[in-house]
Design a protein around this nucleic acid. Structure first.
Lengths: 130, 130
DNA sequence: CAGTATCCGGCCGGATACTG
DNA sequence: CAGTATCCGGCCGGATACTG
């Protein structure tokens, strides 16, 4: 046994204990996962380039990474057609689709409350400046 | 005017264009915000140390940072009582409370689907290993 | 008590170039 | 077309120590 378990490294120290929704946050809500899932849900089965175009500011590397993670988590399905040139299609899975009502709910919250958040930020900043 | 605007720096390049829920993701779903909001919603108005204890694995620095952000976004309210020793209380705001049904919805999704996700990961890893 | 100060490592994501 | 390879910077978050 080599050395005591130094606590230095980034152990996940998941906040899960205090919060039952932490798992879904890890799975679904990273920087690019929601745009990807949203696009697949809206426009159906799509090829890599189509996603790249629709999401626009994403780079191919990152798109690949996120797609792989989503596939691993079972939220999307990847289909490879061995042709020349190669053709790959992505579509949302049933599990992924089960997030749709949730996403709609979130979109509602945004329409209703985003202004309030921005106003709050503004007020806070004004108060902080004085 | 010094130099052309080099595109090197991390411009946010927000994915928002493609996805109407990106804003709420930025506001609510970072590593520690959901545990904090959840705790405040469950146990009501609390002092700094109480939050620290309930969330357990969070450090004071990070707790302060997240609380400030949530206060700025108008999701929580901070009350400072100038006593000795000082007393500060945090409570969820009306805006913060408006997230409660959403959180319940998310918690439901977790109970229903977390097993499926873990199974999918397992299957993916097995397939990848071969 | 309720924080702040300092240091620091890792990881995520971006830029750019290249490939079966 | 659908990616991979390489390099790299910033930021988030953690560890530790200190303060009005």
């Amino acid at each position: 046994m080599a050395g005591k378990p130094t606590r230095t490294a980034r152990m996940p120290t998941s906040p899960g204990s205090a919060c039952p929704i932490s798992p879904v946050v890890d799975i679904v809500f990273s920087r690019w996962t929601t745009p990807i899932l949203w696009t697949l849900n809206e426009h159906g089965r799509q090829r890599f380039v189509e996603l790249e175009r629709r999401i626009a500011t994403i780079t191919p590397k990152v798109l690949t990474q996120r797609l792989r993670q989503l596939e691993r988590d079972g939220l999307i399905v990847r289909t490879y057609h061995p042709e020349v040139p190669p053709r790959v299609e992505y579509e949302i899975s049933d599990l992924g689709r089960s997030l749709a009502p949730l996403f709609a709910h979130l979109a509602d919250w945004v329409t209703t409350n985003l202004d309030t958040v921005e106003q709050a930020r503004h007020d806070y900043d004004v108060r902080a400046a004085r």
